[in-house]
C-alpha cells in the first residue's frame, strides 16, 4: 500500500501519515479530503518548523501552568447517577448496560 504522495516537495507530512492518524483517531477520510487535509496540515506543520529548529535540550518541558503538587481527595464515596437516567441518554441500551455493535478483538 504505497499511497504516500508528498504535499509539497519537502513535505513534513504525507497522505500516508494523514491516513494513519485518521485511523488512529477513528476518522474516515474520502480521497479528496485526504488530499485537502494533507495540504492543510503540511501548511500548519510548515509554520511550526520555526520551533523545530530551536535547540531546547536544556529546557524543561511545561506540561501544565500551575505549580501545584499532590492535590488529593479523601476516599469518601459521593453521589452516583441514576442508571435509568444515564441510559436514557445512551444511543442504545439493554439490560442496564450500554449496547454496542459487536466488538472485534480485545482491548490492548
Amino acid at each position: 500500500m504505497d499511497q504516500s504522495t508528498p504535499a509539497d516537495d519537502d513535505a513534513v507530512i504525507t497522505t500516508a501519515d494523514v491516513a494513519k492518524v485518521a485511523s488512529l483517531a477513528r476518522l474516515r477520510l474520502e480521497p479528496d479530503e485526504l488530499d485537502r487535509f494533507t495540504h492543510q496540515l503540511a501548511d500548519i506543520l510548515g509554520h511550526a518548523a520555526d520551533i523545530e529548529a530551536l535547540d531546547l535540550d536544556d529546557v524543561e518541558p511545561m506540561a501544565r501552568p500551575v505549580p501545584l503538587e499532590n492535590v488529593l481527595r479523601a476516599d469518601v464515596p459521593g453521589p452516583t447517577f441514576d442508571r435509568d437516567a444515564v441510559l436514557s441518554q445512551a444511543p442504545a441500551a439493554e439490560d442496564g448496560q450500554f449496547r454496542v455493535p459487536p466488538v472485534l478483538g480485545e482491548a490492548p
Binding site: P79, T80, Q97
Partner: peptide, 27 residues
C-alpha cells in the same frame, strides 16, 4: 481496596447491578 475510584467518588465495589457505581468521570 479503596472505598471509591481512583479519580472520582463513585464507589469501588465488586459485583452489583451493572452501571450502578457510576458518576460523571466514570462515564
Amino acid at each position: 481496596s479503596t472505598r471509591t475510584k481512583l479519580f472520582s467518588a463513585a464507589t469501588n465495589e465488586f459485583g452489583g447491578e451493572p452501571n450502578t457505581h457510576i458518576d460523571a468521570l466514570t462515564l
